[in-house]
């Protein structure tokens, strides 16, 4: 599923769209507020769905070869996150949906778990 379709599925605003984002095909996702949990065998190219707002979300994405992050509950995304995302080429989206709603909509649309465990 491409970025535009992900955004449409959860009515998300694309806050920063990385240059290479049109090539991205996302099939899996991981949803957690603890990056410690995201770091556990998340497959490269998955989507991170989180309510955690700090730059370590982008760093976690960078380490895992993840190209897109979806922040939930319409939280304000500080400039420090957007700047790091621009530098690391990570697409940033924001939805008003809750974690449960975002996961449910994406799952219904065919996105599967990005973690094998």
């Amino acid at each position: 599923m491409d970025i535009a379709k992900i955004a449409e599925t959860v009515s998300a605003e694309i806050i920063y769209r990385a240059e290479n984002s049109s090539d991205i095909d996302i099939t899996g996702a991981v949803a957690a507020d603890l990056m410690s949990e995201v770091m556990l065998d998340t497959e490269e190219g998955s989507l991170i769905i989180t309510g955690l707002i700090n730059p370590q979300v982008i760093r976690t994405a960078e380490m895992l070869d993840i190209y897109a992050v979806l922040f939930i509950r319409g939280k304000n995304i500080p400039e420090s996150i957007i700047e790091l995302a621009q530098d690391r080429g990570v697409t940033v989206m924001r939805t008003e949906a809750t974690m449960f709603e975002a996961c449910g909509k994406l799952y219904s649309a065919g996105i599967v778990s990005g973690q094998s465990a």
Partner: peptide
């Protein structure tokens, strides 16, 4: 620490 998104007790095993 958990508020910062870490400290799940999975770091060293990982």
């Amino acid at each position: 620490v958990r508020m910062l998104g870490f400290g799940a007790g999975m770091g060293l095993p990982n």
